[in-house]
């Protein structure tokens, strides 16, 4: 599964796991950096999903507002 088609829930789940692992510590600097980069990536994916959903919702609302009657 590439990041393009990872679902919101999968991304959020992985993000939570990354955060827990980072918080638990015990990783090397290199590992920590890689984990953090992955976390940022996942957070961005989640945000894209939420932004996209909100944009669609807003578009539908505008369409509804433009409808006659």
């Amino acid at each position: 599964m590439t990041d393009q088609d990872i679902s919101y829930e999968a991304a959020r789940g992985e993000l939570a796991a990354v955060v827990e692992k980072l918080e638990a510590g015990g990783t090397t600097l290199e590992e920590s950096l890689a984990l953090w980069e992955r976390g940022e990536e996942l957070a961005a994916i989640c945000q894209r999903w939420l932004d996209g959903a909100r944009a669609r919702l807003d578009a539908a609302r505008r369409e509804r507002a433009a409808e006659p009657g």
Binding site: Y8, R12, L15, A16, V19, L22, E23, L29, S32, L33, W36, G39, E40, A43, C46, Q47, L50, A53, R54, L57
Partner: peptide
Amino acid sequence: MTGLLDREQHRLDLLRSRPVLARPELMV
């Protein structure tokens, strides 16, 4: 839908505000 999005945004914000993500410089 709005409620769902708001809740999810909140969850995501919580995760992102955890120090390990919000202040990666701490790691260094």
